[in-house]
Design a protein around this nucleic acid. Structure first.
Lengths: 331, 331
DNA sequence: ATTCAGATTGCAACCGGTTGCAAAAATTGT
DNA sequence: ACAATTTTTGCAACCGGTTGCAATCTGAAT
């Protein structure tokens, strides 16, 4: 079917090794034979079979890109960035959708079958067991958007969610809100737990502030809307820190439905700064996660882990930044 | 590194062939040896190397999933559906991002290197040259969301955009709009060209209707907003058929910025029915593309093409449906 | 012209599997 | 118990590459 190395070798009148060497850099080939080979290859339309070579080299250049976030628009941006960056580095993403997967075993088997060189787990909600399972199978893995730990099991790159919580609280306090709300994502999500801790820490140090805490069922529009609708029934706070941007938009929609408006009646600050947040009809004040940096750093880290597979697990944290838009009262 | 077939064979006290056969269905193995092999495999944690086997079988079960739509939220849904469906069928998506690729050669080389069994091009804006290039290289390819042609070069599955245009026009006429607008996507996009043709056909048959046509620079929020802002300056139509949902949302935002509202001042009908369209604060009347069916059918078709690689190119078209929401005046 | 180091080349074995073929084993019928 | 079938098994070659090694070639130095 496809053109093979052997055919090229015959046509060029050289050995198979010679052909192989022209396509492995660092190998010793004279300019003369290289010319011959390249000529023959071009005529035949040859391109080396990466999978076959992986057999001997032990490297497929395949990276498992694993996620269960296929409903948060932020992740479209994340996939865009990951695929481009991996391509730039000569790696190929094998996309794995873990949406309704509960058993790490299955995904592990799948990844082993395709002998991926490494794995990037891109999710803030995926159970750490998954990343752990890959790690235990000696597959280099980095957990992007994962939870920070000072002594992590696996490489982690993301943001310091505790600090994000503090940042949100400070932002709300600075604007003079006295009654503020923490509207988190799903209760069990580590991101929510951490943000809440930071949030409460700062609030606790302030005086005369009333807080209320609640959780949405998911990081989604609908869950955000439902949660805010519920808030509005029982004396709502003046401003809320919402679990993420898409939840925030749900909350804004609830506010609007109730005949109220942000920031005049209720303030909202989100988290992520996804593309949509800056749409004029949304114009959401939010905390930006530097996703480009997280992605680039994840790729860099997985490559480093490829080189040295018992590299010590590392946590890389990036700082976030408040993006002022129109859903919080001005300073 | 990884456990190989040979080790399992030794441990189980059988030949390598026996092990191989236990994992290829349809092969002849006695229950007894199968037991032994499975035991040894379990103890060793063996899983067969799909890439190595692809060498002899000629099938990698890798499917190139190619797109340049990483900014339209609809495509997150599309990727979700594709990855799940492919996984269900035992295929693995190798994701390729063509965002800034102009030369089909590069992508072709990349796909050949990884000897994908087939390719799914998921994009309505990608140049047909790409799909064509893969097809010429004898790689089974289906173009999802591609342009219908009665004698297509490659397998196509999508919707009949001409009919969508007609449907939009009929919907607007039925609501009594007399001055209507076609606000298309980028001028060169075949989807826009086709929809416009259908739209104008129906309008042409109606009496006393005024039409105006314009194009946005891209299928994006910003382009939709800019285009509508421009419309609003010079006597706008009463209602518009917008290139797609995300453009529609941009247009709605422009309408809102101008102090107007839909549907009271200006009506909008979109196309796609992406998840966001039903968000309460958007509530967009739109034409639904049955993306689940398109995806499932694409996967089915690519699998069929794998079986019979000179299967005659086929176009599969699905019908769309108007989804009534709140951006068009009621009937 | 000779020597020698360094560069280039081909041979052959190997990577982790699959598969056609013939031999061996199990099953069937009588 | 024996022959005829059918099933199971292992051997060995092969898939498309890579790579250690020894042989050959090259050019510079003597």
């Amino acid at each position: 079917m496809a053109v093979t190395l052997k055919e090229v070798a015959e046509r060029a009148g050289v050995s198979r090794s010679a052909v192989s060497r022209t396509y492995t850099d660092g190998a010793s080939v004279s300019p003369k034979t290289r010319k011959k080979v390249e000529k023959a290859a071009k005529e035949l339309g040859y391109s080396p079979n990466a999978l076959a070579s992986s057999l001997t080299t032990g490297r497929t250049k395949l990276i498992g890109l694993i996620s269960n976030n296929f409903h948060n628009p932020l992740f479209l941006e994340v996939f865009d960035l990951f695929t481009r960056r991996l391509q730039e580095k000569g790696l190929r993403p094998l996309l794995v959708n873990l949406t309704d997967e509960t058993d790490p075993k299955n995904s592990l088997r799948m990844l082993k079958q395709y002998s991926v060189d490494g794995v990037i787990v891109a999710s803030s909600t995926l159970l750490p067991e998954f990343a752990k399972a890959f790690h235990d199978a000696k597959i280099p893995v980095v957990h992007s958007f994962g939870r920070f730990a000072s002594a992590p099991d696996v490489h982690v790159v993301g943001v310091d969610n505790v600090e994000c919580g503090r940042m949100a609280a400070r932002t709300l306090l600075a604007r003079g809100y006295k009654h503020i709300g923490f509207l988190g994502g799903p209760k069990g999500a580590t991101s929510t737990i951490d943000r809440r801790a930071g949030f409460m820490e700062v609030i606790g140090q302030a005086k005369g502030i009333k807080v209320k805490v609640s959780n949405a069922a998911a990081y989604s529009f609908e869950a955000g809307r439902v949660a805010m609708l519920k808030e509005l029934k029982a004396s709502p706070a003046e401003a809320y820190f919402c679990g993420d941007d898409v939840m925030s938009i749900g909350a804004l929609s609830a506010i609007d439905s109730a005949g109220l408006a942000a920031p005049d009646d209720i303030g909202i600050i989100g988290l992520n700064d996804m593309e949509m947040a800056k749409w004029e009809n949304i114009n959401l004040t939010t905390i930006r996660q530097p996703i480009k940096q997280i992605v680039d750093s994840s790729v860099e880290l997985v490559m480093a882990a490829l080189e040295d597979s018992n590299r010590h697990p590392e946590a890389r944290l990036f700082s976030c930044q408040v993006i002022e838009r129109g859903t919080l009262r001005p300073l």
